[in-house]
């Protein structure tokens, strides 16, 4: 019902965005996000209800570690009521502190599944360390089930194979990766690694680095640190050797 209300409010076909917004309304969480996942490529963020969710999404994309990554790989819900606990820091030594810095204290990831098929993950975060009780867990799983069905029902237009309602997809990250293949003279995989490494090394958001690359404010050159053009607003003065 909550999901339906959200869709009606938007005046559009029900979509994963509505599941996320409904989940935030119904559960003791600050934000939610859904990503489509596949075994062979990086995840595709589909929606986030707020900036913290978007950042958590991006961190996991940049670092390749985190609750969403584990939930998808293991096929089970990953519940982390306290990101600052020792076990969690052991598990995700880079993600955990970065996530708390972004404003999350607890994260819960639910794989979207029908049998052996897993098209994605539903991520929830809270800004205080907190558990989900049994009722909340059941609700969260129901939201995950709904998201799974909606995701699989996503309309795909032929012949270009264009996916409708992609929501949170950011083309710049992929465009920037393509640009880097030329600037660095490397394959697409390495280009993506280099882009992510730069974001991580400079403590910047992947989407922002990508935007700079696409806007030609930031250029990469083979075997050197990236250069910025003189008129860039952000200062890249801290060259690392």
């Amino acid at each position: 019902m909550l999901v339906a209300e959200q869709a009606a409010r938007r005046g559009a076909r029900v979509s994963v965005v509505d599941v996320c917004v409904a989940a935030v309304t119904a559960l003791p969480v600050g934000g939610a996000g859904v990503s489509a996942m596949s075994r062979s490529t990086a995840s595709h963020p589909l929606c986030s209800t707020d900036d913290v969710s978007a950042q958590l999404e991006e961190l996991q994309l940049t670092l390749g570690e985190g609750p969403r990554v584990d939930a998808f790989a293991l096929g089970v819900a990953v519940l982390t009521p306290d990101l600052l606990s020792d076990e969690v820091l052991d598990r995700w030594p880079v993600f955990a502190p970065a996530a708390t810095e972004a404003g999350a204290q607890a994260v819960f990831a639910f794989p979207l599944q029908i049998g052996a098929i897993s098209p994605g993950v539903l991520d929830l975060y809270a800004d205080v360390a907190d558990e989900l009780d049994a009722e909340d867990l059941a609700d969260a799983m129901a939201f995950a089930d709904t998201a799974t069905l909606i995701l699989l029902d996503t309309a795909i237009d032929e012949p270009d194979g264009h996916v409708r309602d992609l929501g949170g997809y950011r083309a710049e990250i992929d465009q920037a990766t393509g640009i880097l293949t030329e600037q660095l003279g490397v394959g697409i995989e390495e280009a993506f690694v280099r882009l992510r490494a730069h974001a991580y090394a400079h403590g910047r958001r992947l989407a922002e680095v990508a935007a700079d690359v696409v806007a030609r404010r930031l250029r990469f050159a083979p075997d050197t640190t990236p250069d910025t053009t003189p008129d860039t607003a952000r200062d890249e003065a801290d060259d690392d050797a």
Binding site: A36, S38, S40, T41, H44, P119, L151, L152, T154, I156, D160, G161, H162, V163, L166, Y169, A171, D174, Q175, A176, T177, G178, I179, L180, T181, E182, I188, V214
Partner: peptide, 18 residues
């Protein structure tokens, strides 16, 4: 179908950049 469609989008954007 979904995976293919999402991956196609990624490929096209990467090709545009290149």
């Amino acid at each position: 179908q979904l995976q293919t469609a999402l991956n196609s989008r990624v490929l096209i954007e990467q090709a545009k950049g290149k």
